[in-house]
């Protein structure tokens, strides 16, 4: 639980609930814990509906209507985002923290040109005159591999291909030199070769500029390509974190292992994990024991009674599974 002072982003015990008053209350995030060092690239993986996107939106405080944070804290560069006044929060969005969205074709407004939209983001945050912004736009478009600045800037979203749009989206994300980029499934809407190019681009830009990346995906090969570390999310909780290589080599949590076993070696487009029977509980907040227990091939009685805490396996590897405790400890408490 030690919060390193130089962390870029620290999420502690984040709970997000849906509904309330009129609709039934559902838990979307059930105590998420995440740490991201400056310049680090963290993969946040899990099935559809496990809360990946919700985590990303919480950081920007842009939860959809009906969802709200009930407890927890999100610290960014030492400041608590959940307590920040809206005005300051708005200044942060699009400048210090930016987001790359899943579907660039719908993330850009169809009736304005790409150039106008990126320029709007600059003029909102930067104190630059028209010419300065124009130069910065050319620079950033060049960086993302769109050197034909005039054509791209004057284009409407429908005139560009998906790959070009995602490059433009990355340009918009980087134009104000952020320290954290949240990439929410940035390659899902693209075909495999383009996706690989986009990932390589992100990796290169990250090396050059040193921003941190929270890479939200269900695509494990992509994580391997891009991320330093991986956090596995299941039913609104982080159930395992480890350096990328270690996770792929020696995953502890049965869910992670199932995930790895079911993932094809090439980038998969489907989000269902056929290898694991069953599905995510509809309201994780209502589950008493381990939320994966109903689907877990290794579950024993204790799993249905006790919420497993995150246990360090190595100094950099944690898993929230009773089996990660010493086997005899697990037996003894059973």
């Amino acid at each position: 639980m030690s919060t390193t002072t130089d962390a870029l982003l620290t999420i502690d015990d984040l709970r997000v609930v849906f509904g309330g008053r009129h609709a039934p209350r559902l838990t979307a995030l059930d105590g998420v814990e995440l740490r991201l060092a400056p310049g680090e690239s963290l993969g946040l993986v899990g099935e559809t509906g496990c809360g990946k996107t919700m985590t990303g939106l919480s950081v920007l405080r842009l939860l959809p209507p009906g969802a709200k944070v009930s407890t927890g804290s999100i610290r960014f560069e030492g400041e608590d985002l959940l307590r920040m006044p809206e005005r300051r929060m708005r200044r942060l969005r699009g400048s210090r923290v930016t987001m790359i969205f899943q579907n660039p074709a719908s993330a850009f407004n169809p009736v304005f040109t790409i150039g106008w939209q990126i320029d709007r983001v600059m003029s909102q945050h930067l104190d630059l005159d028209r010419r300065g912004r124009r130069e910065r736009l050319a620079e950033v478009l060049g960086e993302v591999g769109l050197p034909d600045v005039d054509r791209i800037a004057a284009a409407y979203p429908h005139q560009l291909s998906g790959g070009m749009l995602q490059r433009a989206m990355i340009a918009m994300a980087l134009v104000n030199r952020p320290s954290l980029v949240i990439a929410d499934e940035p390659t899902t809407a693209l075909d495999a070769t383009i996706a690989a190019q986009i990932l390589a681009l992100l990796r290169r830009l990250q090396d050059e500029h040193g921003f941190g990346v929270l890479f939200i995906t269900h695509n494990l090969p992509a994580v391997r390509q891009l991320c330093d570390r991986v956090a596995v999310l299941y039913a609104g909780r982080v159930i395992e974190t480890a350096p990328t290589a270690e996770l792929f080599a020696a995953a502890q949590h049965p869910y992670t292992r199932g995930l790895l076993a079911s993932a094809p070696s090439v980038a998969s487009r489907g989000s269902r994990l056929a290898a694991i029977e069953g599905s995510v509980p509809p309201d994780p907040g209502a589950v008493i024991g381990c939320s994966f227990a109903p689907r877990c091939p290794l579950a024993f009685d204790e799993c249905r009674r006790v919420r497993p805490p995150a246990v360090p396996i190595t100094p950099t590897h944690e898993s929230a599974c009773l089996l990660a405790l010493e086997p005899d400890t697990a037996r003894a408490s059973a």
Binding site: R90, R93, G94, M99, A107, F112, R120, H125
Partner: peptide, 25 residues
């Protein structure tokens, strides 16, 4: 729409989001 969410995610002021962007759409 997604693009309104992305405008907000990029810190565009609410008045611009409503009267300049969404109204245009």
């Amino acid at each position: 729409q997604d693009y309104v969410r992305s405008a907000r995610a990029y810190g565009i002021g609410e008045r611009t989001v409503v009267y300049r962007l969404a109204l245009r759409n």
